[in-house]
Design a protein around this nucleic acid. Structure first.
Lengths: 252, 252
DNA sequence: AAATTCTGTCATTGTCAATCACTATATGAA
DNA sequence: TTCATATAGTGATTGACAATGACAGAATTT
């Protein structure tokens, strides 16, 4: 890979993920630690990212937002990221993977490294990112919603209806015992429902704040598919037979 | 292979892949490293690509990143912009507008102000931008190509085949009397062709550099639809009955 | 204290610019 | 026509330079 090309990718990855560890960059870009280190030093000198002990963090975010809170320990072990990484590790060769729209599933994208799988999504920005990682990506058709970049409507519905996925990953605004998985937008909910129904294995990624919340549209019952969360989830949800607690040791 | 022909191919490859190594170019074009090196030096001097250690990087890519640097007067009166603005001014209420993938059509997006029209495209980034301007946007399905963000393949073909557009805007890498409108990627070409066929009014946006160039895949004959260009176009093309010369005074 | 990450160094490999020799083509004089 | 000369494009070679990966010892984090 060309030097400049690699540096550009480092920037891209860093900005996309807000923060990234040096070792991960080395693996992702198939270069030695020394090389990445040199790149980071240069990019730091040019004020294109901020180099921190163990990796780098995006500057865009520090400038626009008010949370310079990203610290070293967050590089790999932040709760949301842990859940995302666990989910991503489940993708096997030859899988046909459905990726739901939303920020939670978005966290997964950088960790989806299996290029012997096919990815299908209804989110234009997810598709863009995955394609740039070199994956085969199929994007659903339909009406594009500006805020979420999600495709919705009858075209989207019919497109997904005709497909069958071996595995699917979903976000959910609310998870409750009675109402199951819920989402605020009925249009997006309909798409979630049909996609969910067409997956053989289903995983809902949920940080603990999602539990006991109920949103407008229910797209699946709670006992359909697995919930991936972390140890801070309420006990009654952790005790469900289909709840998975993501932990670093689970991820190879 | 002719000198000029080789240089044109180097540019094509570089822009298509965003970055390419010198050795790869030498193999692809069956020329010595020395020759490619000389070509790259020249192309770099003429600001047609960026030569970096080990190969070359497309300028298109860098330009889109540096866009905010462009001067305001360039934005409105540059030849490409003028063509794009003229094209955009043709959209009427209730139009069903097809927007082709590509940088040329991308220039149009900021000038598309008619929110009483529906926009359909096969380019994820175009769709994203249009949706954020508040338009109703339909995006085609299919396989997402990383470099161009264009959707291609049989799904895309079928999706577009079932639609009818009142007006369509297209880019073209080459325009010649004999071969008509041509584009380098056959997959994208097929989509262009079917979309072109399903438009009532067709406009090809072309800066003067596109004339007398021939690319791989021909998606339409030159007398089908209108060409929008500027006064610097070769006379024989300006004399065509279906060529429109974009001029500031034409745009309200 | 242990583990991880950082800095600086070194040998290796890859790339660069400059140069030379070869070929094909053109030009004009004998 | 035939020959010498000029010109442009190409491929190979070379020493100089840049990039890389590995490693050791220092610094930092846990």
């Amino acid at each position: 890979m060309l030097n400049e090309e690699r540096k550009r990718k480092i920037l891209e990855i860093t900005n996309e993920r807000k923060s990234v560890s040096l070792i991960e960059l080395a693996k992702l870009l198939d270069a030695s630690e020394s090389t990445i280190r040199r790149d980071l030093n240069e990019l730091h000198k040019n004020k294109l990212l901020k180099k921190v002990h163990g990796g780098a963090i995006s500057l865009n975010d520090i400038l626009t937002q008010d949370e310079p809170v990203l610290q070293r320990q967050d590089l790999n072990t932040g709760s949301k990221r842990l859940i995302a990484r666990y989910g991503a590790s489940l993708v096997k060769d030859n899988d046909v993977v459905y990726i739901d729209a939303g920020t939670t599933t978005g966290e997964m994208l950088p960790y989806l490294r299996n290029t012997h799988a096919v990815y299908i999504t209804n989110c234009a920005s997810h598709a863009h990112i995955l394609a740039n990682y070199g994956h085969e990506v199929h994007l659903a058709c339909g009406i594009l919603k500006a805020k979420t970049d999600a495709l919705v409507g009858s075209d989207t519905y019919r497109y997904i209806e005709q497909l069958n996925f071996t595995i699917g990953f979903f976000g959910s605004n609310g998870i409750s015992m009675e109402e199951g998985f819920t989402t605020p937008d009925p249009q997006e909910g309909e798409i979630k429902r049909i996609a969910y129904d067409h997956c053989r294995e289903r995983y809902v990624l949920a940080d603990p704040s999602k539990f006991d919340a109920i949103s407008t549209y229910s797209f699946a019952a709670i006992d359909k598919g697995f919930i991936i969360t972390d140890s801070a989830a309420p006990k009654k949800y952790k005790d469900l037979h289909n709840t998975i607690i993501a932990d670093l040791v689970d991820i190879v």
